[in-house]
Design a protein around this nucleic acid. Structure first.
Lengths: 345, 345
DNA sequence: AAAATTACCGAAAACGTTTTCGATTTTACC
DNA sequence: GGTAAAATCGAAAACGTTTTCGGTAATTTT
């Protein structure tokens, strides 16, 4: 009933425990004969090393922690998939936690993962985190950590991101190229780097094209669970506040879809009256009508890459080599669809 | 640098290790004074019990395994969220693995989780699994396992499901109530219990309403990564094969949306020419046009419930109580939207 | 045949915790 | 002051593994 142990095998075969251990791991100082015997018996007893004991002895758990703001989210669940798949290939398991965009929770979860003694941590920051002590703690414990997508530039660790600023620039430029003259922006929450960067990209594109930057055209949404509703609300407000807006660059597809729904309801034609560009390329965006022009954000690849980096750093840390932190930038591309007009420039 | 241990605290205070251990856990046989000293020092040293050692000693890891067919999937990611949230409340961590609808992978992953010695396992079966030895193994090791959504009736463990048959019946009845006379069905893969049950519900609704059951109106799709494409393909085929079909009950929203896209492209009007009912109530279904009538499947609740059950069984197993397996059936409801007409019956 | 090398094995320590149980000290009681 | 009870502590064993190192036995070399 109870799982087999090295001791049992040793007693059965009248040899010592260390010999059994070494036989199973093909140490050179065990004869072929005893190796054969040990391995055979191990198989029939269905021996599996006790991970608890192995962990205690080797001081590693072959497990990493993943903290993610939201799970039910096309982009993030793609990231999870990438991480889990890659981790499994390397024999690592992934413990997943959802921060719910809360700084407090995130802090607790980092603590939890540290006390669980995971070998490394992958994290995408909550909107609310503006303080990074909990992350510094991880680093000072010499535990590898890599951040992805929602990062803090100030923290010294490797990061896997996209160039939000450039992508936003590209999105806005596309609107301009299709003839939009007065372009609004629905931005994300104030803190996270990527909503800042996307905003900056938007602004720069305007200025580079000699279009005035008008702060009253920038609307904020938290992009939490209420994204869709926020999109509707912002759209409604925009229609009240302004009349000649002919394009919007929106921080996230889901918000964009909310906005489109509202415009639809109010009889505002897309893209004839207002063109819209989203961000992320949720699957949904390709099936709604009109289909949504957006920026494709490679979630699966980002997860895969993030794990690969973490893996390297875990290995290096083990060998006491020092690690130099990278900043890996993944490519994005504009996906042109029906929510914007043909480019004329 | 290295994390503090009981030993360090003991030496600092000139007391024994067990006393430190007991002081931290508020054993009654430690004086208030030493408790105070120990706790204070523990805090300043930032002592965290070494999980590896605790696990080894207590033979439990406070960790459960979760095997899920796909992660990037509205329903399943909702389930994950429910599980993770509930587990965290109870101090449990969740290791997540994706079976990719592959029986072979699923088998390996069960093995992995067992050798990791998780305290329990939550699983939703892959489409391909028709053999249950790997699950019996778990049970025979006295390790709690609960299945959810995609289950095998034959396996003796508790299950959290919906009544697929009844829900499908309800969906089909709705089509009938709106006046449909010739109703097709896009079913899921052959093996999983829920595609069977949904098919049976569909069939029964037809017969109960004196409508003929015509096998040529039943199309199969695997519902894997290609769901959307499969929906389009089936829709195309249906239009070739038949003319007077006026309603379809489709196994999954994503397939339904694929079908709707194809009908749109071919100028078939929904719901005027063909009414459609999906299954699962993906968020997407509420924003496409026309919005999709569907069955709401409570993913978050299912995850939460499944974990709660597992938790109970873990506790009981620990106390060597015997556990009686339940079958918990969660409520679903029909969400009427624009892809079906007004009910006339 | 003696010496040197190689092959094989096990004793011991260690990882950090938890729990039982007996020993000692302190307090309470008459 | 003597006894009984209660309070407080620590020795020891255990969880199952890994790794170092020294020792013996077998083999090879001179």
């Amino acid at each position: 009933m109870k799982p087999a142990t090295l001791k049992q095998i040793a007693e059965h075969l009248n040899i010592s425990i260390p010999t059994v251990s070494k036989a199973l791991k093909d140490y050179p100082d065990v004869s072929k004969k005893t190796k054969g015997l040990v391995k055979e018996l191990a198989k029939t007893l269905n021996y599996k090393p006790n991970t608890f004991a192995v962990n205690l002895r080797t001081k590693e758990s072959k497990t990493i922690g993943l903290i993610i703001p939201v799970i039910v989210h096309h982009f993030f669940s793609s990231v999870i998939k990438g991480i889990v798949a890659q981790a499994e290939k390397k024999g690592y398991l992934v413990i997943i936690l959802q921060s719910n965009e809360s700084y407090e929770l995130e802090k607790k979860q980092i603590d939890l993962l540290l006390s669980q003694r995971v070998d490394g941590i992958l994290i995408s920051l909550a909107n609310g985190t503006g303080d990074y002590k909990h992350l510094e703690d991880v680093i000072s414990q010499n535990k590898p950590i890599v951040m992805f997508d929602k990062i803090a530039k100030i923290v010294k660790c490797t990061k896997v991101i996209i160039n939000d600023r450039q992508a936003a620039y590209c999105a806005t430029q596309h609107l301009i190229n299709t003839g939009c003259k007065r372009i609004a922006h629905f931005r994300g929450a104030l803190l996270p780097q990527n909503s800042i960067d996307r905003f900056l990209g938007y602004k720069k594109a305007l200025l580079d094209n000699n279009l005035p930057y008008d702060p009253s055209l920038v609307y904020i949404c938290e992009c939490g669970d209420m994204s869709f509703e926020e999109g509707k609300k912002n759209a409604r407000q925009l229609l009240k506040d302004h009349t000649h807006v002919d394009g919007i660059f929106i921080n996230t597809d889901l918000v964009a879809i909310g906005a489109m729904t509202e415009f639809n309801n109010q009889g505002v034609k897309i893209p004839e009256d207002i063109s819209i560009v989203g961000f992320s390329n949720w699957f949904m965006s390709s099936v709604i009508s009109p289909t949504l022009t957006t920026i494709n954000q490679p979630g699966y690849l980002m997860g895969k890459t993030a794990f690969k980096q973490l893996y390297k750093e875990i290995k290096k840390t083990k060998k006491k080599e020092l690690i130099n932190h990278k900043e890996i930038i993944l490519k994005t591309e504009l996906v042109k669809r029906e929510s914007t007009k043909k480019e004329i420039l």
